[in-house]
Nucleic acid binder design. Structure first.
Lengths: 333, 333
DNA sequence: TCAATATGGGTAAACCTTTTCTCATCTTCG
DNA sequence: CGAAGATGAGAAAAGGTTTACCCATATTGA
């Protein structure tokens, strides 16, 4: 605890000046290989660790970025966070996580705190791609990247490609030979819902049946009841808007003696492990690759911080179909 | 972006020296109330924000703490994180979140990064209270607090009180007049499982039936089947080790025509909203108050950082029973 | 009226590292 | 053998803030 070793200690122990010590450790300047080695060895022996604040004071960088989110539950933000961290730790950059709920005042406080800490950049994240965080991040003295949340028109925004993801899911059902596919999804006021429905309709035609409800297992249950009581044929494929709905659908089918995947194939969305892999049978579902999204967001904000040119606008990252058992043996299998 | 305003700017704009400006803003030193006010007003107008690195360089504090976790999913860590953040933001302290999975190398990298950043303290957190993080945090130059994870013998450790929480749950069932209560819980190698079972047995006697399995809905389902096929009376109260098991139990009961809560009262554990409030009927369950745990952890690590005396050892924080509908109308209702 | 004491505010050092000059020594070539 | 260039390494400044120390001026008491 008492007095960390400073570069001054390293220098005197190695018998050189602090300038030489600094250059030796940073690989800059010219000096005998022997000198450089000796300094490095001494530094290692002393457990020298350069003071980030002194360094930051000089370079005007903190090697720190802030992640702002209103996803208090963390279901979307945590994978994004993991990706950011993974990408940036190699560059010695750490991440401040600030959960601001939906409170503008709390948001402002956290943004202020970040700016005080001289973050090199801020990543804004959320729980849906068509809502904004309750804070104004324009005109900040640091670069801002929006990941999985809506940003202003001229911002750098990264989102997952809902259309493409849904397209993959429905295409998979079609390739399995499913003929009558319905889409059970969440509330229509979600952009994700509309995008996924568009992809669905593009593949099955405008006659495709889209049932909008909530993001819950209950709604999945209820949707199955509705499909059965409507008198029409039971569909042989159900594309669900998220894994919870899919779980409800699968449970309801089982309760009614409809076999998944024999009688009906079910696809979910989100690849929320804790739901998808525990459902019986485990769900085939769409993964939004949030970790990759986070990685890209981290690298992008860093590039901006370093003044490198970055293309502005919305960048959509592809989703990926995760095949489990809720659709039966796939054509690729 | 170009050149933040420094205290120098404030000083010259207010017509005082930087020393006076600094003292005016920090409320120290002696000066005319008028002078102090004027400096503050000018600082506000210029949007002055003291450079945290310069300040930290001097005070040898970063106003930063690190949160280390292997709970990649965030179910336990996120509430803890929210509590820490909530408690510390008022002191101007921000939180680095480092998700290290279970990788010792990654853990070491992140700890190094934190120390480089001169964190004022580290909070270690996890997903169970009887496992350690795969990193050695002893002999660090900064204080460490363990929250919801096991720490060394002489450490400061905060955990939720599993025994007390389970006691409340079973007591509730007894007060509702339930006579034959069983306990369906997770794997016996969890300390939480043993502690909760102890509390259960203390109340129902040594004859109490404890069914250990997994933390999954499937196990909840299976446990109900086992209870029914064993030939004995169906219990009228089931205390479950977590909300997922409880959900499985409730679902299985419904499938078999056993009414919850009329025929059997079910209590869960964790108050994991997304499961507890969506189960039909919504679960009465035990909340571990992880947010409060986080808040305490934050305040404690800060106290240590400031050299204040802190009692070492394990501190157990009380759980709280959240009453919903899976037990029927309560005696208090 | 003069010395002693508050009172208000300025000067400069300190925190630790990086980096720009600058200088001394060694090598090499004419 | 002398000068120019290459090479290695040191001195010092810079970065923004806090604070110990110091110095004026105003006030008080004798």
């Amino acid at each position: 605890m008492a007095g960390r070793t400073r570069i001054y200690d390293v220098a005197s122990a190695a018998g050189v000046s602090i300038a030489t010590a600094s250059r030796a450790l940073n690989g800059s300047g010219r000096m005998t290989a022997e000198t450089r080695e000796r300094v490095k060895r001494v530094a290692a022996e002393l457990g020298f660790r350069p003071n980030a604040m002194a360094r930051g004071l000089l370079s005007n960088r903190s090697f720190t970025v802030g992640l702002l989110t209103n996803d208090s539950y963390g279901r979307f933000t945590l994978p994004v966070m993991a990706g950011i961290s993974e990408a940036l730790i190699d560059c010695g950059v750490s991440v401040f996580l600030c959960a601001i709920e939906d409170d503008p005042a709390l948001g402002a406080v956290h943004v202020d705190a970040m700016l005080d800490k001289q973050v090199d950049g801020i990543i804004a994240s959320g729980k849906r791609i068509d809502r904004r965080l309750p804070v104004d991040l324009s005109n900040l003295p640091v670069p801002v990247v929006y990941a999985f949340t809506e940003g202003p028109a001229d911002s750098v925004t990264l989102v997952s490609d809902d259309f493409q993801g849904a397209h993959e899911a429905v295409e998979w059902l079609l390739r399995l030979g499913r003929k009558r596919i319905v889409h059970v999804t969440g509330p229509e006021n979600f952009a994700s819902v509309r995008l996924r429905a568009q992809a669905y309709r593009k593949l099955v035609g405008e006659g495709g049946e889209v049932l909008c409800g909530e993001w819950s297992e209950l709604w999945g249950h209820a949707a199955v009841e509705r499909l059965l009581s409507s008198g029409g044929d039971m569909p042989d494929g159900i594309f669900c808007g998220n894994d919870q709905i899919a779980r409800g659908v699968v449970d309801a089918c089982r309760e009614r003696g409809i076999d998944v995947p024999r009688d009906v194939s079910v696809v979910g969305f989100d690849n929320w492990e804790i739901v998808a892999s525990v459902t019986r049978p485990p769900l085939t579902t769409v993964d939004m690759n949030l970790r990759t999204l986070g990685r890209e967001a981290g690298l992008t904000v860093l590039a901006l911080a370093e003044g490198k040119p970055v293309e502005r606008g919305i960048r959509k990252l592809p989703c990926e179909l995760i095949v489990r058992e809720s659709c039966g043996a796939g054509p690729r299998a």
